[in-house]
Simulated assay, not measured.
Amino acid sequence: MNFPLQARSPLVLALTGLFPLASMASNTQDYAIPPGALGNALNRLAAVDGWQIVYDAALAEHQSSPGVQGRHTREEALNLLLAAAPLQAKVVGDNTVALEPAAKPAGTPVSGAEQQPHSGPVSLGTVEVSDSYAHPRYQAEQELRQRYYIPRSTTATKTDTPIMETPMSIQVVPRQVMDDQQVIDIKDAVKNVSGVQSADDFYVNFNIRGFDTNNNIYRNGLRLTNLSALETANLSQVEVLKGPAAVLFGRLQPGGLVNLVTKRPLDQPYYSVQQQFGSYNLYRTTVDATGPVLDDGSLLYRANIAYRSNDSFRDFVSQENLLVAPSLTWRPIDPLEVNLDFEYQHYSFVQDGGIPAVGNRPAQIPISRYLDDRWSQYNPSTQDRYLAGQSHQASV
């Protein structure tokens, strides 16, 4: 295959033999290559003669060619194109020519660096080496990666152990992922974990490796049951343990468990307010505030508040959910930390009875039709949940 080749980046060739250009066959033909950039002229010459012309793009950069007109051999045509450029051609194979810098004529003055002999040691200039890890942009990238990378977990062993050293399958959904996806429900967060499906149930329920969790979910390692409409505003991450874990958690299904890890107070003040809007009149407001209570940092606080209100694609169906979750962290001495958590959730909803079946198919009515007692929209069902928890840890 014959094709012109013009290097767009530095090209290195291993040349086993170089022969004068005059050794090629001398057959004349007509040329009509106008003056212009040397690279364009070489491409046109290669297209006419079927040559492969190999050269470093830097050699032809900013070089011009007078062009070639009339009848010439292809060797003469190439020499005419290179007349104004400090280049010379060498044959490196059949129909292949390499261009290289032309040798300096005898008597051409050389620089002092070229005259200096290299028989002894050569003193090099100072080389400054900087640490790229200290660059602010790199540090910002590392901080962003750490929001997605969770190296440790307490679910499998109930100790702060690296996941790589834990002989069980653990997957973690970090807070940054939930923020990126604007997750407002636990079921949406767990969709990121393979082998776990949300069960179609009123209560929070999952199928892990084909086993139903029986409406059980764990919060900081403690089991809770028959909970609904759980919020994500006060969660730092969601950890999913796959496989049997009855040794640590007692009686549970062999598929695994879902553990909710709540946010902890921070040493530095942090305040956040977020407003979300969505389909079917969805409104959700979240507030997150944390910081030290005492100047010495021995007592910290955090308060998470979330309010959500939304309708449904079904007429007269609506939901309202309020979560208030304050927490305190007390550090009386350096190795000891005591955490106190409290949660209050008020959940109000109108039950959706769905569409009845006629025979073995749904009734032919609009999907938005509400068939339950309409009085229920004025007397919605309510759930009030109170939860208090205490934990402590001591480093050794």
Rank of each mutant, 00 (worst) to 15 (best):
Q275C: 05
G250L: 01
D49G: 14
V396K: 02
A41S: 04
L323K: 04
T166K: 05
A41C: 05
D212L: 06
S198P: 10
P380Y: 12
N360L: 02
L38C: 09
Y270H: 11
D30C: 04
T96K: 05
V204R: 02
R251Q: 07
G112D: 12
G112Y: 15
E343A: 08
L282D: 01
Q29I: 05
P10L: 09
T16S: 10
Y270G: 05
S348T: 10
A388P: 03
Y283Q: 15
D334R: 07
T154M: 07
L222T: 13
Q63W: 10
T108N: 02
G120F: 06
Q176V: 06
G120A: 11
D179P: 04
D94S: 09
A46E: 14
T155W: 05
E337V: 09
N310C: 12
E239H: 00
A103K: 06
V240C: 08
D200R: 01
L81C: 08
A60N: 05
E76L: 11
D131E: 12
D334P: 04
N220T: 06
S391T: 12
I355A: 12
T382G: 02
R361E: 11
P136C: 02
L252H: 09
Q88P: 15
I333Q: 04
P335N: 07
A106L: 04
A60L: 11
S65L: 13
L45C: 05
R385N: 09
K90R: 15
S348R: 06
E337K: 06
M1R: 00
Y270A: 03
T225Y: 01
Y280P: 03
S309C: 10
R284W: 07
P117R: 08
K263D: 05
S153D: 09
V122M: 06
S279H: 13
G291K: 10
N207D: 14
E320H: 14
Y31K: 00
G93Q: 11
D296E: 15
D296W: 15
S123A: 13
Y344P: 08
I33D: 02
